[in-house]
């Protein structure tokens, strides 16, 4: 069963995502709302990882080497300025979308397995991921015109 492979992928991507939110929080302290919200969301992703634990216990997990596109290296050095903030938020959006669709895949398997517990975990984590994406989109939309038009040099 390849579910274990997907649980491994989900597990890795959630950890990567939480780490990335923390890096952005740290790198953008001058935008207090970004810092604060990224910290709150990172803590909630930790919660998702905990919820995954009993599922992993049941089905096992197979972790493949971290996929290329999930490297967090880019977050070791957050960017600066209006455009830098925009790009960092956009990277978070991409990572968050990856976990979003991974939850969807796992959720489909949960339905096939008639695993009610896993279905509940997926449902609550999907809502949480939707909240991340909604916040990122809100903040990106707010920032984009000033960063792209008004900033000079």
């Amino acid at each position: 069963m390849h579910l274990a492979t997907y649980l491994g992928l989900l597990h890795t991507s959630l950890r990567t995502l939480a780490e990335a939110f923390r890096e952005v929080a740290k790198g953008h302290g001058e935008e207090p709302d970004v810092q604060r919200t990224c910290e709150v969301l990172a803590a909630r992703i930790d919660g998702q990882v905990s919820k995954l634990a009993p599922i992993v216990e049941r089905y096992g997990e197979h972790r493949e080497p971290e996929p290329e596109r999930l490297h967090t290296a880019e977050f070791d050095q957050t960017r600066s300025g209006g455009v830098g903030l925009l790009r960092d938020l956009q990277d978070l959006y991409a990572l968050s979308s990856f976990t979003d669709i991974t939850w969807t895949v796992v959720g489909q398997a949960a339905q096939g397995l008639r695993d009610k517990e896993l279905m509940d975990v997926v449902s609550s984590c999907e809502q949480d991921t939707a909240r991340q994406l909604a916040w990122l989109k809100t903040r990106i939309k707010q920032s984009a015109p000033q960063a792209l038009i008004a900033a000079r040099g």
């Binding site: 709150v40 916040w135 809100t138």
Partner: peptide, 10 residues
């Protein structure tokens, strides 16, 4: 909005 983060409802 989402009251925890301020994310807008579409």
């Amino acid at each position: 909005h989402d009251l925890l983060t301020g994310a807008q409802t579409t």
